[in-house]
Write a protein that binds this DNA or RNA. Structure first.
Lengths: 129, 129
DNA sequence: TCGGAATATTCCTAATGGGGAATATAATGA
DNA sequence: TCATTATATTCCCCATTAGGAATATTCCGA
């Protein structure tokens, strides 16, 4: 039952926020951390947790680790992320995070971000989806 | 975030099996226990857990406790139960449980079950849905 | 009133998870 | 080589949970 792994990931608020962001495109840890305004350990641990359960992927890009949903995410995960997107009326936090993400990307487009190289590499992926 | 409660319920295999059965109609504890072939404590505890989180309801019918999904279940729960229903190819266990349930109801229809009164009361609800 | 069936609760133990502080590791640039 | 940045890991504590054994509770019928 792989399904259990999906639900285990989904049953923590912080992980939901992370997934909600990754759904819109890959991000490095420091950006996730900044957007969520949560300590580094916490961010890294939750990402590691989901990574171990194979729900998200990580790749090293120079000094940064970029996390992303896999090309073909677990269907159950996808379905639920879509759901959460829909009920984001209740999910003020989600919307707020998304706005912060948009602002961050905009800021980085002017290339004064903390890891421009990562951003450039991800540029084709992040705006759409 | 009520959503977390839903996912907490969903991240245990036994609870998934219980929900999968309740989705088809109400059942008393002893029937659930029999179908799942799990010890009484375990069954009762998981049901209690979900009940406390308001995902399922219970009503006392003489000596039995009948558990059921609420009239208007949490939308996220419903969505996921539907999902699980769909991917039940992987979920051999679910199908097996459903067959056992059908057999049980058939047997009870001949009124030699352990709690006929409960069954009678629930008859209008269980066949459909 | 008593015994038995159905269910819930309590007590215990082991495992897991969350969070923080501190430390380790990896990669960069000076 | 060294300092710095980004990230992961380890250690520690606390809360939650799963599961079983035993016990309590509720309700029934004799």
């Amino acid at each position: 039952m792989d399904v259990i792994a999906v639900y285990k990931c989904l049953c923590d608020p912080m992980r939901l926020r992370l997934l909600n962001l990754l759904r819109e495109g890959p991000l490095c840890v420091c950006h996730l951390q900044e957007i969520l305004n949560e300590p580094q350990v916490k961010t890294s641990k939750h990402l590691g947790y989901m990574r171990r359960l194979k729900l998200i992927e990580a790749r090293r890009e120079n000094n940064w680790t970029i996390y992303a949903l896999p090309d073909r995410p677990h269907p159950l995960l996808e379905e639920n992320l879509k759901c959460l997107q829909d009920c984001r009326n209740e999910m003020q936090l989600f919307r707020k995070d998304q706005r912060k993400r948009a602002a961050l990307l905009k800021r980085l487009a002017k290339s004064d971000g903390c890891c421009p190289r990562a951003v450039i590499n991800l540029a084709p992926k992040s705006p759409t989806r």
